[in-house]
């Protein structure tokens, strides 16, 4: 077998289109998924009784269902299953929704570990200053919790980015879909998947570097002392 990467040249546009889709799916998912996780973590952190207890348990069920089922099944359920209930959504919307729900559940659980490790004194200081539970969560608890679990959070976002390859199965034109598409035309599987593998690798490294850059800004307070 001789390698011939020039066979890919006619398909540069397809690869670019796939790359753009994968990147924007990842960026939107990361932002929306983390936002969802914050809401879920806050609601689950509350009282286990009364109306908020029911909400807390429902959200607990959501987190467990997502974490204990395959991503591809979740995706198929949204795309092929929902129309049976009369809710029809496009492949792209289904992909985005599945990815956000997935990242939201995992991140909520990661974040909960950070929230649970908040020292009692922080809560007491916030209460003594008159902050409400929400104010205390937002201004006192959240940022240090994030800083404690940040490495796990980065890994989770990379997993979701790589997992987004699965959305090609419902014909979303992402990077993997582009690869399959090209391979089915030019039959140069080795070249195509080698290039796409390298692109995913670069994306993962880039995503990690971006997260670390943001982390250094956000968590500057951790440098320079013992506590």
């Amino acid at each position: 077998m001789t390698l011939d990467f020039s066979t890919l040249l006619p398909y540069t546009d397809a690869i670019l289109e796939g790359l753009v889709t994968t990147v924007w799916l990842t960026v939107v998912t990361t932002v929306a998924g983390i936002a969802l996780a914050i809401v879920v973590a806050y609601a689950r952190d509350g009282s286990r009784e009364g109306p908020s207890g029911i909400v807390s348990r429902l959200l607990g069920a959501y987190v467990e269902v997502i974490r204990n089922t395959p991503f591809i099944v979740q995706l198929f359920f949204l795309f092929f299953g929902l129309p049976a209930l009369g809710v029809s959504i496009s492949a792209t919307v289904a992909a985005l929704l599945a990815m956000i729900l997935n990242l939201g559940a995992y991140t909520a659980e990661i974040l909960r570990a950070g929230i649970d490790s908040t020292l009692k004194g922080q809560h007491e200081a916030a209460r003594a200053l008159g902050l409400s539970r929400l104010q205390s969560f937002r201004h006192v608890v959240l940022m240090p919790a994030f800083s404690r679990v940040y490495p796990s959070l980065i890994s989770q976002c990379i997993i979701v980015m790589l997992g987004s390859a699965v959305v090609s199965q419902i014909s979303v034109f992402d990077l993997t879909y582009a690869a399959n598409f090209i391979q089915s035309r030019n039959f140069r599987g080795f070249e195509v998947y080698l290039v796409v593998t390298l692109i995913y690798l670069l994306l993962a490294v880039g995503l990690r570097l971006a997260f670390e850059f943001v982390g250094r800004r956000l968590f500057a307070f951790r440098q320079g002392g013992s506590s």
Partner: peptide
């Protein structure tokens, strides 16, 4: 008295300081 009102009447300082580490 709401916690907000209470905190304008009574301040508290703790043994372990309990400053918020992420704030200057």
């Amino acid at each position: 008295m709401s916690p907000g009102e209470l905190s304008q009447n009574v301040g508290m300082v703790f043994q372990s300081f309990n400053l918020f580490p992420h704030k200057t």
